[in-house]
Design a protein around this nucleic acid. Sequence first.
DNA 1: TCGCGATACTTGGTGTTGCCAAGTACTGGT
DNA 2: ACCAGTACTTGGCAACACCAAGTATCGCGA
Lengths: 106, 106
Amino acid sequence: MDDLTELLKGVLEGCVLQLLAQGDTYGYEIVRTLNQAGFETVSEGTVYPILLRLEKKQLVDVTKSRSEMGPPRKVYSLNTAGRAELGSFWQRWDFVTARLATMRED
Amino acid sequence: MDDLTELLKGVLEGCVLQLLAQGDTYGYEIVRTLNQAGFETVSEGTVYPILLRLEKKQLVDVTKSRSEMGPPRKVYSLNTAGRAELGSFWQRWDFVTARLATMRED
DNA sequence: TCGCGATACTTGGTGTTGCCAAGTACTGGT
DNA sequence: ACCAGTACTTGGCAACACCAAGTATCGCGA
């Protein structure tokens, strides 16, 4: 698959929100989940900035938790504002996909 | 509808390619077509750079044509490379939408 | 004839985003 | 002591949509 970079703008943040909605998790795991979900080239340098952004926008709560293997994890959990933002994301996504589907038909 | 800016990255160029695939046209008209297609806030400052980009990438052929109202138009027509790029765009788009649909289900 | 509005295109600067590379640091196994 | 795997950070880059302002052409009404 060709370069998806531009098409992923805004989308990856939505993906991370969606993953967090399915249960608390942390950066390193999110990277591997996204890789298995088909976004094979997404790496840590992409995901961690997203998480820092979500934190700054106060869409997530953060707790440190010890790990058996390696340094402590920053475990993220979606808060109320985060769930609202996720809803807004899907709304915007549906809007765009609908318009594109229409344009494609004509 | 909220701000779609980030979600439109890469998408608008695809839209322009798609419009050109449906017939030769020019910038000013493309803006209005996009506006009527639901992308109401897309303006000239967004569309013209896309057209210059397509021209630079040699995905379109350009011909000047006089207009009854106003200055001459730069009429764009999709060439072979442009049609290939459009196909590639839809392929990438389908890829992303499919992965997002899956992530949403789970 | 003078300006005004609609048409039509250009360009410089801005902010956001994904991406790459490099670095830091903790842990367990050999 | 070393190394691989785990886990997070950060600086710089390129691309894109967007805004604002500017330029230019034409037709029409005052």
